[in-house]
Design a protein around this nucleic acid. Structure first.
Lengths: 237, 237
DNA sequence: TTAAAAAGCTGACACATATCAGCTTTTTCA
DNA sequence: TGAAAAAGCTGATATGTGTCAGCTTTTTAA
């Protein structure tokens, strides 16, 4: 959790090219480099808690972070999984409110913290950047509308199938037999992603395996039959 | 659906004071007034369909509009109810994508359509306005995260109780016995708001009535016991 | 005014999913 | 290395909610 010696300059950061910072001028990038804080995080560490005040934004250089809300029954609803190039906490910062969700490390991560003022300065100086940020947030809103609709109108089986497809899109690497979802998630985390109970995920996953839609390789899931999962994820499919 | 003679100038529009346009300079407002289109809509009319391209934004002067997604089972998930001063369709416009949801009139409405170029011009000229828009979108994202978590982790009874409380906050008018939710929604629409089946809403509402939490006055709902509903809407409350 | 359509309501029923409990396996860390 | 903790798994059970069907009441519009 302490600042590392091997900080990466934004100008040279490879992950930046996948991020909203792609296209920002070197001058602005230097300003950020001078003010940011590079920190290595281990799996399980907490980035921020729901309800606390954002002092800046986080930018992922490497690793995976889960963003989640804790429901009143104690269960975690995972809002999204963030990876290299993704920003964290900027919606709460720009919304001028406390963090609406918490964030913890799922896979060891290197993350830069950019203080509020530096971020806001670039945002106000670089109109094109502000526009890209606005666009990204609007797209996220569309995604959330979709998620809400799925949550209320689809069955758990459908949502789990859909979640597996999405995971394989993002983290899938091709192998000889199907596509491996190259990220380690506990059954509880998958449940948090889908919005259901852990036991239900366990049961449905072993059902999917029995039906030869998926297979397990260690803690990782292999998607054997994308079309089958797609059929399942649709209504009455 | 045709342009009306009695168009209102933005500078003089009372609803504007509750909107994101509050604070925009008269010069910009005039520019919008010159380019906008004022249209009266009757209950049931459609403003836009999910999947079509936004050509501008809608600004509500009067009336109520429901924004919803149609799920693959044909049911409507209502994302939000919009009223005077609210913008519609701007997230899709700014996200440079098709409408992520549809919108229809719930109560007779007067709505201005502001063409894409006019809106974007004000957005780029007036930085403070852009900031307010960004802030509003970020706040909406936080709300959607909350809704998603509620949808997956709370029971229908809890969500209905919560929905009634929210409706009474927004549309409530005080009477001698409790607060009247002064908006006519069908049971089906309440179901769409909660994310459940119409029959379930009917059953739960009559249960709430039996428990003297609410009462009916014509097609409108009277909230008799806010605290009782609040207790119900919490987990195991 | 009246027929048709929409909305509201109720009962019966099925079942997907949450919960609880107990167990095994894997992982963690002292 | 070995004990404790976490994760994974399975079975039994309860129940909330969706679905279907049929009916009444209200609203709409011809």
């Amino acid at each position: 959790m302490k600042s590392q010696p091997k900080s990466i300059a934004c100008e040279l950061c490879v992950s930046r090219k996948f991020s909203l910072f792609a296209g920002v001028s070197d001058q602005h990038l230097c300003h950020i480099t001078d003010n940011k804080n590079f920190i290595s995080h281990k799996k399980g560490q907490i980035l921020f808690y729901e309800g606390t005040k954002p002092m800046g934004i986080f930018c992922i250089n490497e690793g995976i972070v889960k963003v989640f809300k804790t429901a009143s029954n104690g269960k975690e609803q995972i809002i999204r999984l963030a990876q290299k190039g993704d920003f964290l906490g900027y919606t709460s910062l720009l919304g001028e409110e406390s963090y609406s969700s918490s964030a913890t490390i799922v896979e060891d991560a290197k993350i830069c913290f950019i203080p509020r003022e530096s971020f806001l300065k670039v945002l106000s100086d670089d109109t094109a950047f502000h526009q890209r940020v606005t666009k990204a947030i609007c797209n996220d809103l569309g995604i959330m509308e979709e998620k809400l609709t799925d949550a209320t109108q689809k069955s758990i089986r459908e949502r789990l199938a859909f979640t597996l497809l999405k995971l394989s899109e993002t983290y899938g690497i091709d192998g000889q037999e199907g596509q491996k979802i190259d990220i380690v998630l506990t059954r509880e985390e998958i449940a948090g992603l889908v919005g259901t109970a852990t036991e239900t995920v366990i049961r449905l996953l072993s059902e999917f395996k029995k039906d030869e839609l998926i297979d397990f390789e260690g803690k990782k899931i292999i998607v054997l039959d994308k079309k089958g999962l797609a059929r399942l994820s649709d209504f009455y499919g």
